[in-house]
């Protein structure tokens, strides 16, 4: 269980979130929604331990860094980087160090993960050859091999076509069925209504659990 109590987050001097308390049950599937700048990404990063809290506490119930997978928005990555799909995935399959090798089981996991996202034939292709949707599938495959208890997804369906969105949603539902905790930042309220049992809505410095905005706010 993840327990948030009195969490306050800032960007420099600006308070972007304050007094957030609540619980996210182990194995639950939660969508994080709210307008741009409401602090969704920052909250996700804070849960992953990558953004400091200015006050309050986040109790991860004993999870450590290796138990957490954070899939950041992929758009910042250099897609001209000369690397193959399977290398992107394999590099994440183990905690890397100079003397650790990537063994047979890791390579098998890489193959299986790429097959799961429908890229079995693209294994040895350079990532430059991929569309935005295919690249997002590679990042999902990478998240699969991380085999984490807590999976944090930041706008996983941005710039992704409908077919890919359906496929990636099925991966998320599989994670949920396996008892992993999943928290995803999302914009599409309809999609959230249909697929996510729990929600956390962030608006101007206040938060509401399991209460979605009316459709009129969807444009945000």
């Amino acid at each position: 269980m993840i327990a948030l109590s009195g969490v306050e987050l800032r960007h420099g001097e600006r308070v972007i979130l304050s007094g957030l308390s609540g619980q996210i049950e182990t194995g639950s599937l939660t969508a994080l929604v709210g307008a741009n700048g409401s602090g969704k990404t920052t909250l996700l990063r804070a849960i992953a331990g990558l953004h400091p809290l200015t006050s309050g506490r986040i109790d991860l119930g004993g999870l450590v860094a290796a138990d957490i997978a954070l899939l950041a928005q992929g758009s910042h990555l250099d897609r001209s980087f000369p690397i193959t799909c399977s290398d992107v995935v394999a590099l994440a399959s183990t905690r890397l160090g100079p003397f650790r090798s990537i063994g047979k089981d890791r390579l098998a996991a890489t193959k299986a993960a790429l097959a799961r996202v429908g890229l079995a034939e693209m294994e040895s292709r350079p990532i430059q050859a991929l569309s935005a949707g295919q690249f997002q599938r590679v990042l999902f495959a990478r998240t699969i091999v991380q085999d984490a208890h807590l999976i944090l997804l930041d706008e996983p369906f941005t710039a992704v076509d409908a077919v890919t969105t359906r496929l990636l949603l099925s991966v998320i539902e599989e994670w949920h069925a396996q008892g992993r905790t999943v928290i995803a930042v999302l914009h599409d309220i309809e999609l959230v209504r249909r697929h996510f049992p729990h929600t956390l809505l962030l608006t101007d410095q206040s938060a509401s659990w399991d209460a979605l905005p009316n459709p009129g706010l969807q444009a945000a």
Partner: peptide
């Protein structure tokens, strides 16, 4: 290689 490709990921995992 991993740090060059995705420094954010490297920071989060290692």
């Amino acid at each position: 290689v991993l740090e060059s490709l995705d420094p954010g990921f490297m920071a989060a995992t290692s």
